[in-house]
Nucleic acid binder design. Structure first.
Lengths: 149, 149
DNA sequence: ACTTTACGTTTACAGATGTAAACTCTAATC
DNA sequence: GATTAGAGTTTACATCTGTAAACGTAAAGT
């Protein structure tokens, strides 16, 4: 019965917490010393600050702990890709539906992508094109109003 | 000398404030009565709450005011598309560079896009493909460490 | 066994954010 | 001109975030 409950992650991961999660996601697992060491090289944060972030992430169910002698080994409880999707999607969801396409264009323009990524995106988009609507309506105004931004 | 200073917007627009901005962006300009009326139909917020949001947006330079009798007309000081780009980009910037491509794939899968948007995206991606690197390196660990997530 | 580390926990505290009531005027109404 | 209503401003307050010191305790060293 050592399996961790699959408690749904309710709270979102904050900006500062992302830095900690990225280390753990990349290493797969890490003790606090490692996390503090690596994060310290990327941010001007005191060890105490990073400890707080780790603690909050454990509390909100983003990191699991396994006792290992005097210390803990931390492992991610949510997949990195899931967290990224959630973050991006909730951001997009609060933006005008009509403008999201343009937002993607601009974001993609400013993001370095590998050939493989680009090709996969193109494939997905070509597939998506077959069932895409002609237009997307602006949803910035309440039900019953017509708008366009 | 009635021109508003082009003060750079420093503070980001918060989630709740987005709701107000979307109304003003869509209408081009609006008085508080209109904003409160429309936002009230989308969120269970008291008029006082929406007033606060308007006030904060003015204070942080996202909305301009023009006196019109006893009241104000509010107009956006930052373009919607700019705000969207900034929000998306800052979100993406804190994520692993290597995983951003997949994040786009997933986000696009879950977003309704028009045929025109999709075609524009494909065009941009095809262009981007010509200069794209073979791979993007994971940048989750500090300088000098090799990682991959 | 005693001391020193160092890991995790508690406490702290300012500023941001969500949410809203109270208050102050000025413009509109009687 | 006195009154009222509605627009904007102030104040309020709990929670979340960023940032960190202080503390308790068990493991490690001597």
């Amino acid at each position: 019965m050592a399996i961790t409950e699959n408690t749904e992650i309710t709270e979102a991961i904050t900006d500062a917490e992302w830095a900690v999660m990225r280390i753990v996601w990349t290493l797969g697992e890490a003790d606090s010393h490692t996390i503090i060491d690596l994060v310290s090289q990327q941010h001007v944060w005191k060890a105490a600050t990073i400890k707080t972030l780790i603690g909050r992430l454990v509390k909100k169910g983003a990191l699991a702990t396994t006792k290992n002698g005097r210390q803990f080994i931390y492992t991610p409880l949510i997949p990195e890709q899931t967290a990224m999707d959630t973050a991006l999607t909730s951001q997009l969801d609060q933006m005008c539906a009509m403008c999201r396409g343009q937002a993607f264009v601009n974001a993609i323009d400013q993001t370095e992508l590998s050939q493989t990524d680009i090709q996969e995106l193109i494939t997905h988009l070509q597939e998506k094109l077959t069932t895409a609507p002609t237009t997307i309506t602006c949803d910035c105004l309440p039900e019953g109003y017509e708008g366009s931004c």
